Amino acid sequence: MTAIRLALVPGEPAGVGPELCVRLAQRPRDHDLVAFADADTLRAAADVLGLPLRLLPPDNPATQPGDLGLVVIPNPVRAAFGTPDPRNAPAVIGALRDAAAACLDGRFDGLVTGPVHKAVINEGGIPYSGTTELLAEQAGREVVMMLANDVVRVALATTHLPLRAVADAITAPALERTLRITHAALRTDFGIAEPVIAVLGLNPHAGEGGHLGREEIDVIEPLLVRLRGEGLRLIGPVPADTAFLPARLSGFDAVVAMYHDQGLPVLKYSGFEQAVNLTLGLPYPRVAVDHGTALDLAGKGLADPSSLFAAADTCARMARLRRTLSA
C-alpha cells in the first residue's frame, strides 16, 4: 500500500508559516509531505532556525527528517519576515488552489494549511473571506468549520458573523446541514460509528422555556426531534454555560455551537497550542493551524509549532481512516 501523501501550504510567506513548516519537516513521520511554496522563503526560514532542509522533487518520497517535497509556487516579491507584501497574494492563493486541486484529483490524500493574512490578500486585489470558503467553492461542497483538540471538538452553526446577525442565520435548513455534515464527518474522519452530538441553545439557559428567546422552541428543538427520529444521537438544546463541564463533555463526541464565540473560547482555553481547524464536508481531509500569522514573531525562531504538528498528525490519521473505509 502506498504511503499517505499530504499537501502542505505554509500560508503568508512573511509570517511564521514557513518556519513552522521547516520544523514540521524535521519530525519522523510515516507519511509523505509535499509543500506548495516558494523555495527561497523556506530556505530563509531554515536559516533562521539553523535547521537542515533538503527540498526534493514532489514525486520523491520525503519521509526522512529534514526532507520536504516541494511543488514550487514562486513569490513575485522576495518575502521579508514580519512585513507582508500584497504583491505576493496571488502566490498564497495559488498555492492553496493548486494543493486543493491535487487533493481533488487524488494525487494527495489530505491538505494541511498554515496561517493566511486575509487583509493582505484583499489588499492584493483578490476578494477573499477565508480558506474554508475558498476550498468549499473550489470543491463545490457545503462545509462546516470545526475546531478540535484533545479535550473537545466544536463545530460551528455560524462562523464569522456579527452577533446582531446570528439569530436570523439560525434556520432549520442551515442547522440541519451543519448537523448532518458534522455527523457524517465524525463517522468517516474520526471512526465513531454512532456519534453523540451536543447541540447548544442560542440564548442564555437555552431560552428558559421561551422567556429568554424562542429560537430553541421554534427552530432548534423541532429539528432535533425530527433528526433523532432518523437515528441521529443529538443532545439538546443544551445551555452553553454548563455544556462544557468535564462531566458533561465525557458524554459527547462533539459540540455544535450556534456562533463563533459561544464555543471557541472554551476550546482555546482548554488547549490552544494543540488546537486545529478542520473543514468538514470536503472530499478530502483539510486541517489547519488554529492561530494567525504572528508577524511579530516571524523570522525570530520563536513560534510554537505545536498546532501545525497536531494538524499534520490529525490530517494523516483522517486520510488513513478514509482510505481504510473506502477499501
Rank of each mutant, 00 (worst) to 15 (best):
R29T: 09
A14E: 10
F309P: 05
G15A: 04
V219Q: 13
P305R: 04
L308E: 13
I93C: 11
A62C: 08
V120F: 01
G292L: 04
P195L: 02
P74W: 08
H211F: 15
L96G: 10
V287K: 02
E215C: 13
I93L: 15
N60K: 15
L212E: 11
S129D: 08
A319E: 02
I197E: 09
H160I: 10
I170S: 03
V120W: 01
T41H: 06
N88H: 00
P305E: 05
A184P: 11
L6C: 07
V143K: 01
H31G: 00
L147Y: 05
A3G: 09
D313S: 14
R23A: 08
R107Q: 13
F244C: 09
D105I: 15
F244P: 10
L135C: 14
A327E: 14
G140P: 12
G15N: 07
I4H: 07
L135P: 15
L223F: 14
V196H: 06
G201E: 03
E19V: 12
N203C: 08
T113G: 03
F36Q: 00
R78G: 12
V225R: 15
L295K: 07
L249T: 06
I4Q: 06
A80H: 12
H211V: 15
P305L: 03
R214F: 07
R78T: 14
P74D: 06
A198Y: 04
P283H: 07
D59A: 14
I197H: 10
A3T: 08
R164N: 04
R27W: 08
D304H: 07
P204S: 12
T2E: 11
P52K: 05
G292S: 10
H117N: 14
N203M: 11
G69V: 01
P283G: 05
F36L: 05
A184K: 15
H205Y: 14
M318Y: 03
L325C: 00
A254F: 05
K118Q: 00
S306F: 04
D98W: 01
V225N: 07
V22P: 13
V116G: 14
I126H: 08
R141M: 13
P65A: 02
A193R: 14
A327F: 00
L68W: 13
T171A: 15
T132N: 05
V238P: 09
F244H: 11
A25M: 03
D304W: 07
G209L: 12
V225T: 14
G140E: 07
S307E: 00
A46Y: 09
Y269F: 13
P86F: 08
E19Y: 12
T188K: 01
R23N: 03
V116L: 10
M146Q: 09
Y259M: 11
M318F: 06
L234Q: 10
V144A: 08
Q26R: 08
F108M: 13
P74G: 03
A136Q: 06
I235P: 09
G207W: 11
N149D: 06
R322E: 10
A79T: 01
G66Y: 07
D296F: 02
A327S: 14
